[in-house]
Design a protein around this nucleic acid. Structure first.
Lengths: 151, 151
DNA sequence: ATGATAATGGAAACCATTTTCACTATAGAG
DNA sequence: CTCTATAGTGAAAATGGTTTCCATTATCAT
């Protein structure tokens, strides 16, 4: 029951193998709290194992997203960012606070109670009114961070 | 005080002119409730006035976004979508309900009270804790629309 | 071992958007 | 009214993140 055991199980459940490339990518995602881009991952992975190419990074990220192991965020400005999904990390349910100037992204977990109240009410109401089956939501706050205000 | 008067005033306030191209683009945005892409706008505008190029569409959209006349949304999947900002249309404050399959986007305005309560609490708390100046927020719900469920 | 299938890397393609550059329209000075 | 500085424009080229193609390699079931 080594380091990759858990991921191996997860992927096998979807009919995929845990290859060296996939494990390396999952390692990068597991060992950061940042929101990393495909290129970020490529840089790190490639430094250790130059045989792993950018194509594989993209392919793997899509696969991991499909299987629900990671989440993809498009914050705008071109590059998508990825992070382990809540079920697959020790992260709590969180949303994002984004600086419009430097594009810094802060995860916040506060206000869960008020959020739950609103989300639940809205979700139930929307499901009824529009007959959607809702399974996800996303909340962003935008503003200027203290560094950008003074800088 | 013709049709473009209001926009003329708005743009002049920022030191810009209301040109034929800009008016055509604003007309498209004013006369739809959809979230339109640069290409959508180009098609419509270009049909009437083939001299207006795609470059101008992009340039104008950026200008209109900077001046707060329109909002840009990146729902993912490549192309940005635009709509008149709340202050510049008859739209109420709304958020988005998105079908993951067909990518249909529904604006909803319900649950404003519960939303306000949550947003206000979160915004105030986040401003204090992270010292951000927050001026905007975005809420998306994701799910499957009734057509995609049965289809 | 072997044959079928999954996974891979590099190069090329893709495609929305941005940049470049030479040209045109316009407002404001004189 | 004319001139001139500047704003606005279009076509074509460039950009850059992501995807596709294709030939090759690794791995699983038999």
């Amino acid at each position: 029951m080594g380091r990759g055991y858990k991921w191996g199980q997860k992927l096998a459940g979807h009919g995929f193998r845990l290859t060296a490339a996939r494990e390396a990518i999952l390692d990068v995602l597991s060992s950061t709290n940042e929101h990393v881009s495909a290129e970020d991952i490529y840089m790190t992975v490639h430094a250790d194992n130059p045989r792993i190419g950018l194509t594989t990074i993209y392919r793997t990220l899509e696969l991991l997203e499909q299987t629900g192991i990671i989440c993809k965020f498009e914050f705008g400005h071109g590059r998508a960012k990825y992070e382990l999904s809540e079920a697959n990390s020790h992260k709590k349910h969180h949303h994002h606070l984004i600086c419009k100037k430097c594009r810094k992204i802060i995860d916040y977990t506060e206000f869960a109670k008020a959020e739950r109240e609103y989300i639940q009410k809205a979700e139930t109401g929307l499901e009824k009114k529009y007959r959607f089956t809702i399974d996800d939501h996303l909340i962003h706050f935008y503003g200027i961070c203290p560094e950008c205000k003074t800088g």
